[in-house]
Design a protein around this nucleic acid. Structure first.
Lengths: 151, 151
DNA sequence: TTAGATGCAAATAGTTTGCATTTGT
DNA sequence: ACAAATGCAAACTATTTGCATCTAA
């Protein structure tokens, strides 16, 4: 078997009662090498390149499973294209999407620990992760818009 | 023309240079009557019921446009189903999605004003809205899981 | 050993496109 | 008047499903 160095998530898979199959480990590896954002189309290509024996359906079954386990979350980055899956390394992820050029700017801090705790207590829920998306204009598009407005 | 009582958003449409067509006003009305969440399939049905002359393609074109204008945001609530569009009344929206039963619990407060301001200053961006999604287990599913674990 | 997972290929269904026609401004 | 927007229906494409086979535990 090839080198699959992703202890933690594979462990979580096994602990939840799922088999550590080649398809699952390969998809996991491709996701983890994606740098945080990957579309289903790109994922299909890369998984197929890594191991042509893995079928398309299995890749989609992995995406389902990993979403249910909060490893990833599908979201729409480019409008009306195939979904983009974002990795949620510690159960959460945050980014800004530019409405003009679709650039994605990531940031780390969210200061949502207090809100998480408050919601869990008030609503009697157990929270395992979150996704925070801001929408607006990136620096470049702010400048362009200002220039356009001047003309 | 029927009663289209949605001043603010229609105004924003016009101000951005878009024509106030029957298709757009009807889709806007259906979205605003949706209570905050609606799938593209449901939307198509309701628009068609409201005015059978409106074509499917126009509805999708509206969804695109309204997303670009930050009136709505597509998201995946049920895993792997048609996208759900959430209304962002004041540019933002927040909810909790139960990973077990897919129930959506909305909440109002997010305390993100300070973070918004900080990001705008630090990254030189202009932010117009945000979506915050928490994932986890709702009260019912927490209880069920506890019961199951006891058996 | 065996329930769970896979790969395949066909079926499905949501969404987009091209174009002639209509409509808001 | 005329650019923008529409409706239609055909084309597309991503995703799902059914089933025989395989495999991790």
């Amino acid at each position: 078997m090839p080198d699959h160095a992703h202890g933690s998530r594979a462990d979580r898979l096994r602990d939840a009662g799922y088999k550590l199959t080649n398809a699952r480990l390969t998809v996991l590896q491709v996701l983890e090498q994606s740098g945080g954002h990957i579309t289903s189309t790109e994922l299909l290509e890369r998984v197929s390149a890594a191991d042509p024996a893995i079928g398309r359906a299995s890749v989609f079954r992995c995406l389902d499973l990993f979403t249910r386990l909060s490893f990833i979350r599908p979201t729409y980055i480019d409008n009306n294209v195939t979904p983009t899956y974002v990795l949620m390394p510690d159960g959460h992820h945050h980014h800004i999407i530019c409405n003009a050029c679709n650039r994605v700017i990531e940031f780390e801090e969210c200061h949502l620990e207090a809100l998480t705790k408050e919601l869990e207590e008030r609503l009697h829920v157990k929270l395992t992760g979150h996704l925070l998306e801001f929408y607006g204009l990136c620096e470049n598009c702010c400048i362009e818009k200002a220039v356009t407005a001047d003309e």
